[in-house]
Amino acid sequence: MGLGRHFHIVLLALAAIAVKGWLIPFLFRRAMRQVHIQREVDPYIGYTVSLMLCALGTGLSLVLAHSLPLKAGTENVLIVPASLATLFTGFLLLVSRRKALTQVVGYLVLENGIYLFALLLVEDMPALVEAGILLDLFVGIFVMGIVINHIRVAFDSTDTRHLAELKD
């Protein structure tokens, strides 16, 4: 473990705090102020059912992670089931909510699950790739934010139910 690697990990942590802890919430608060919504009121899948499904998903993640071997010395780390469960929760949020903003939150949760898994590899990944992940996350949110703004202007709402004109 050289000094360079420590530096790399610290830098990454700082970047994560800045982007995930400050920048994205800032963008979200601004978007929420603009579209005047506080919370999702009528999701496709109700809150109770969502919770049950998430619990089920977490259980499945534990089973799934059990079948994947871990490197000697880290067998007891719960990172893999935690990341799979987070991924599942994000996916569920993404498909079960109507508002464009909530769907983006779902996507962020999903990305967090992946980021959690990447922590297993943090010592072996070059800064280039990890920086790419953060950058893409940011740009992705940025582009989605722009589209949300267009949706708001075009439909006077960010409800994706309006986005149901195209079908076979």
Binding site: L87, F91, L94, A100, Q103, Y107, L110, E111, G113, I114, F117, A118, L121, I133, G140, V143, M144, V147, H150, I151, A154, F155, T160, H162, L163, A164, E165, L166
Partner: peptide, 26 residues
């Protein structure tokens, strides 16, 4: 409106796909 809907679907589905590809790469 129609192209907006298409763009939103493309972004959301495409982003999830690309996120899964990242997980696979990891």
């Amino acid at each position: 409106r129609r192209s907006l809907e298409a763009t939103w679907k493309y972004l959301v589905i495409g982003s999830v796909g690309i996120a899964l590809a990242l997980l696979g790469t990891l």
